[in-house]
Design a protein around this nucleic acid. Structure first.
Lengths: 153, 153
DNA sequence: CGAAGATAGTTGAGATTGTCAATCATTGAT
DNA sequence: ATCAATGATTGACAATCTCAACTATCTTCG
């Protein structure tokens, strides 16, 4: 517990030091990761956001915009803007989902896959740098724990 | 490595599935944590940002604004706005650092500590919910790993 | 001592991102 | 056939991020 202890506590009202707080550490680690990622992408006009969309579009998943929004925890309207941007650069296309004509499937073009491969190299190097302090085992362990936070279900 | 393999690769250009990617998981977990935190704070006019500042101000650390900026990975100008806001509500005060007259030390007032204690209860409950799937041991392990990402040094 | 460069805080502008409500086309269920 | 629910879109607005100045103070060093 990190509440104030009942009785004769001195000034230790602080909750087990913010530095044990998962949310705080999560926020800070994410900020660092985001900064490193954007720095790594820097040149190519991609940012972490559009890069993520491109990554999913380049995969075999054939995500709809709604799925992209859910995966990336974005508002659907943000996905519209991101896909608009990528599409205007010829990196992805919207293709109507045959099984649901309301939905668009977002797919990377050939150019998109090339751009993605190049960006992925920079990003993975930056991330490798970020994870520098962790062993391979620790990285997979961290990923496993984070996955359970990120995808409860 | 997750780059495209040289020769006869099919369509498996995807890097080990985005779901093993620490940066991606970090971003998503943080988004969930942030949403849960803001929802928990909802009423009191505090958001996760101002709550974090208040938490640090309520601790024994007596942080300067520069330290707040560094800890929370914010631009110094954002800290100005956050402290302005908290100060206008009587939750913190700026006190000139005797040892450096350029610097302000940010300290929670009595009201601030009360507001913090109340908010901390909601937040910790929300976070407890977020971490629901993890055992106590896993939580400390996650915190330890995240700390090494968040504070390389 | 005194000038030069670095640092803490502040202000302001502009871009990026987050959040919400309304709309249209389609779907799924009565 | 009707009607609530869903995917995409648009538009408006708040929150956040990023930079570039500027002032006051500190620090360094000649």
């Amino acid at each position: 517990m990190d509440s104030v202890d009942g009785g004769g506590g001195e000034l230790a009202v602080v909750p087990a030091d913010l530095f044990d707080d998962v949310s705080f550490l999560l926020a800070r680690a994410n900020a660092l990761s985001l900064a490193a990622g954007n720095a790594a992408l820097g040149a190519g006009g991609l940012r972490v956001r559009s890069y993520s969309v491109l990554a999913l579009a380049a995969g075999g998943r054939r995500p709809s915009q709604r799925e992209l929004a859910e995966l990336l925890r974005l508002d659907p309207s943000q996905v519209v803007a991101l896909v608009d941007d990528l599409q205007s650069r010829g990196l992805v296309i919207r293709r109507p989902d045959p099984s649901d004509r309301r939905a668009n499937v977002v797919i990377a073009t050939e150019d998109g896959r090339i751009a993605y491969a190049a960006a992925a190299a920079s990003v993975s190097e930056a991330q490798n740098n970020l994870l520098g302090g962790l062993s391979a085992g620790e990285r997979t362990q961290l990923a496993a724990l984070l996955r359970r936070l990120a995808f409860p279900g």
